[in-house]
Design a protein around this nucleic acid. Sequence first.
DNA 1: ATGAAAGCGCTAACAC
DNA 2: GTGTTAGCGCTTTCAT
Lengths: 346, 346
Amino acid sequence: MSEKHGCSIAKIAQICGVSKATVSRVINNNPNGVGEETRKRVLKTIEELKYRPNSLARGVATSHSNMIGLVVPDVSNFFYPKIIRGVMDYMDDVGYSVILGNSDYNPEREAHQLLHMIDKRVDGIILCSGVSNHEFLSDFRKYDVPLGLVGRSFDHSLSDTSITGDNIRGSLKSTSYLIRGGNRRVVYIEGNPGLAGSQQRLEGYRKAHRDAGIPICEELILSGDYSIDYGRQAVDDILDRGVKFDAIMTGSDLIAIGVVAQLQHRGIRVPEDVEVIGFDNIELTTVVNPPLSTVSKPHYQMAQHISQQLLSIINGEQVILPHMIVEPQLVLRNTTRKRSYDSEYC
Amino acid sequence: MSEKHGCSIAKIAQICGVSKATVSRVINNNPNGVGEETRKRVLKTIEELKYRPNSLARGVATSHSNMIGLVVPDVSNFFYPKIIRGVMDYMDDVGYSVILGNSDYNPEREAHQLLHMIDKRVDGIILCSGVSNHEFLSDFRKYDVPLGLVGRSFDHSLSDTSITGDNIRGSLKSTSYLIRGGNRRVVYIEGNPGLAGSQQRLEGYRKAHRDAGIPICEELILSGDYSIDYGRQAVDDILDRGVKFDAIMTGSDLIAIGVVAQLQHRGIRVPEDVEVIGFDNIELTTVVNPPLSTVSKPHYQMAQHISQQLLSIINGEQVILPHMIVEPQLVLRNTTRKRSYDSEYC
DNA sequence: ATGAAAGCGCTAACAC
DNA sequence: GTGTTAGCGCTTTCAT
């Protein structure tokens, strides 16, 4: 009776003098066709009334919503937009909507977002840099929704598909590079120490030292969080403590950017006095001055990959390699000095 | 029969030996209560079965989805994440989900996203920096979904609520500041020339000149798009054409960042040789070197404001001031020289 | 090629 | 306080 929400399949049917089933068939391009005549007629009034099928109703009828959930720690962190864009582009192409959620690296908020998406009956979820513990995720699997992980691989049984950079090899590469260049005291400034990724990166740092037979000075290892501010702060900290160092490795580009800024602020030249290497290769690395040397993984492509995998799973297809781990590359820009053997590392 | 999607209200009802209505009442905390006994019992089995109400079904029954749509030009453009975060935070607090869409400044894609959200029966839409023309938007209103605009105010009849910075006053302020500082030839590098915001900003630039009685040199006005790359390119362009200038105003911070980088690259010092002012005050402005002077609007707060307005409208409440326009502020950092009268401008 | 009818999971009168 | 009954807008067998 009410003219409210535009119109329904019933109204179209009535106007065209056909049944709802017929209308449904035409809007779905149903294989067992509809007569040319009627199809035309239906299409015409759909156009006239600017009718749009109700996706919710469709969802309850078919029990799939054509929506997927994407949870990241923080949209406004410079690291995530490219990943978000990667999944959105893919999903848009296949007609899926994406519901976004921020976890703020907080397990409770992450759980909240995940559950909220279950309520929305998303067809699948992509969880980025998840901070949930094994137990929650294991429980969560009960909801039986396809789950893709990017940037952190838990136990493989906890997700249907995952992709992550090899953190250990990443920081191993950069640390080795620094060491081979003659640096003996390289500082490591990590982000949130609790996260799996952080620990792996630190592990790479340690391994590089072991490989080179250089003892590790614990006083050279600082931890805080993955922010520019923390980078600044850490530099002040180490400088004020008067410890000597030749180079700085960081847990993220954001940290590195803060580090470089503060180093410069304190009158220390980069890379002449100290070399700095970041981690992630976010876009920002090329706009800062000097452009940052860093460890790179193809985030956008990783996002597209996981999207594709997830979709296959949603469609009940077999995925060949559900869990992938990608080799990071050293990207040498201007916060490190040029060396003759640079090419060996990239 | 199938054990697939967890369970429904019916199953809970059956197990507890009550009617679906009763279960519905408890999950909705329905005012006209349910007996303590039964409530407890229902809650218990809900917990045990990890039942989660189906939001889609709810949506079709109540005809509101508890979702809103947010379309921006590009999530991965540094300008938008803060706005996105603003609306997400607000919506999260009130239990709404947000579906995101990218328009890429493309009217067709924007229309596509908007329509897609209609299909999803979002309860409201926030459109950011919209590029749709008057006609489309006017048509779009037929769908009768609450619409909030940020960053561009069309004819007020085209949205239920809007908020935008005063572009004219913004660039008027910055240009006047530059002129008062003795600059006679200030370049203006704008973004996409078609957009309303671009034109307004340019208008402010012109007005500042008229006010100061300084003729405008058209050769000092360049246009391209809102990117770092274009900033670089524009600098090359103007330098190569050999035109003289004292200062540069830009249509966005991104452009300004490119400008500063390229100026430095070409051996021109900022701000000693030429002063530069950006527009927007995105986070990036403080991480580049030197930190960028710019024109600021409180994006996060604007996003929260529009979210609140939209929600009021969704709830059928009266909004007092649906259309707002906020006064931008000059933020003087280090790409401009210090002056004795700086405080007058901020 | 098309229609009738049941059902998806939920809410909302209206009864008792 | 609780159950019954109709929807909501769609899809999907099963007839015809």
